[in-house]
Design a protein around this nucleic acid. Sequence first.
DNA 1: CACATCGATCGAAGCGCTTCGACACCGACC
DNA 2: GGTCGGTGTCGAAGCGCTTCGATCGATGTG
Lengths: 334, 334
Amino acid sequence: MVTIADVARHAGVSISTVSYVLSGKRSISAETEGRVRAAIRDLGYLPNAGARALASSRSNVLALVVPLRSDMYLPVLMQFVTGVVTAARAHEHDVLLLTQEEGADGLRRVAGTALTDAVIVMDVQQHDPRLEVLRGLPQPSALIGVPADPRGLACVDLDFAASAASCVAHLADLGHRDLGFVGPPEPVYQRGTSFARRALAGFTSALRSRALAGAGVPCTPDYRGVRRALAELRARVPGLTGLVVHNEEALPVLLDVLHSDGLRVPDDLSVAAICPDQQAQSLAVPVTAVAIPAEELAADAVRAVMRELEGVRDRTVRLRAPELRVRASTGPVR
Amino acid sequence: MVTIADVARHAGVSISTVSYVLSGKRSISAETEGRVRAAIRDLGYLPNAGARALASSRSNVLALVVPLRSDMYLPVLMQFVTGVVTAARAHEHDVLLLTQEEGADGLRRVAGTALTDAVIVMDVQQHDPRLEVLRGLPQPSALIGVPADPRGLACVDLDFAASAASCVAHLADLGHRDLGFVGPPEPVYQRGTSFARRALAGFTSALRSRALAGAGVPCTPDYRGVRRALAELRARVPGLTGLVVHNEEALPVLLDVLHSDGLRVPDDLSVAAICPDQQAQSLAVPVTAVAIPAEELAADAVRAVMRELEGVRDRTVRLRAPELRVRASTGPVR
DNA sequence: CACATCGATCGAAGCGCTTCGACACCGACC
DNA sequence: GGTCGGTGTCGAAGCGCTTCGATCGATGTG
């Protein structure tokens, strides 16, 4: 194993000089730096992570808590994960994977052993037992999602209320006056998943402020569930002409059901969604949608903890404004 | 921060005694051990990971390389990941997440910095540039999947050849003589993904050894792809009565297509699959299937590297025997 | 009863790095 | 010409842990 001492010897300088070349924390003459870098290259030197962590109290690792067994939509989850890994690497950090099951104890463990410099938690619930742990940690943390009480916690998320409202506004501008909202399955609301509630609330208040009629229903992502949801919406919203769908898995099923029921999209029914851009584009009918900017949110979360590691404390909620992409699934009301 | 020195002082023993209590590497009297454990509990001591890694040359972290952007079927991928994390935790290890993009350099980096004790790689290709890196690493590694030349590498996988053969045998026992094989999309074969080829090879050689007729086709997991695959099979295998499906995503679509074509499963066509157990159970018709034992394979991979860390060198290919679960989708030929 | 044996404990030497203070050298300044 | 302030470099003191002798009673053995 090549150590910093080998590099120093090879370059004819002291150990600390090598260290300062690597960290840039003190100025080094161009000539010396050149020799050191050459030595590093020649010897294939890689600094020992443990020694570095011990001496600097920085592990250059961040923990990511992933809801591996949840009913989250996997493709989006994956985008978050890749986003976090990519952003972390851009900040010289690696990502330690924790599962939901590890829970609060897992957080305490990785933080207490100083294995990680920071923690990012996905899919937080409204009243999550991990929140208190996070608040008490010496390490910074960031949530993807917003709990009931986000005080003292850095949170990033899509502005789901504004997203739903943006769908409503788009449909209203096309002349639609009677709208339905298809949400995630009931259990997601029960668990107090905040994005679900915020989207529905955004839908409802947008209806109110524009004096439109409408209702929202939960929906399981199978044919029966979709049929039931549509039936309920039709019953509660006579003359339904527009739909806002916030349920990635149900969306393709819903389009399929409408198709086999002989309903044309958007001629008979306009459909706007909150879903990954890629999905919206690749469906049978390209769907007008507010994209879920998973990679961007992941980068936001990483940025939040990195800034805190640099000493800038700013534990606030950061919501990304929705961007609606109009596609073929919405049109003027007939 | 509580250090081992604090614990030692609190328990009235030396630092090394605390260390030996923790590691169990030397015998400690029950009474002393009690005092030390009490001190650990009272102070909430957690050993510093960096210091430990530096002193012991063990990080207690293993790297998992995940094909986050591949066309792998996500639910199965997730099962592998949770399986690895769970098994690693059972061996006192945490899991560092590397993406495919990091490639060979990523492996060199985490190994070279001694960030990880071992590496587990998923979704290896037949001729994977990372294989040479793995062979040269001082750390042990294990592959989930089998490359063209597995020499010097620990590999674990399902015996896909035997799995396909087991499906053929089951169908043959039910009297079927004309079989089709529905595989993954063409690109998966192109990339040299070994499990795809091994399954098809197993199917073909099982046909031969039982003197049955049949053919295999690749298949994209959409309605058009499935229809095309079925048409080609019917053309190449007149009197087709049984299907072996090795394509998780196409399987539900296929059942749907058969249904809407008015074909009864298993009365008109028997269907056996290689797919996750959970999926096989939850389809419209419960499907006779060889399960993909993702969690078990993950545990096998972790076990392989752990044993190597304990000094037992055994870099061989370990294939799990298939377990066929007979369900409603297969029946006697009419 | 002397001696080897063993169990329980301690002290100290690292592990490879970061970082602080010190120092030597140089040019600028009055 | 002495002083001051930079700049570039070095030495050494840790960071918190593991682990290798060494020590010291107690126990067993011939």
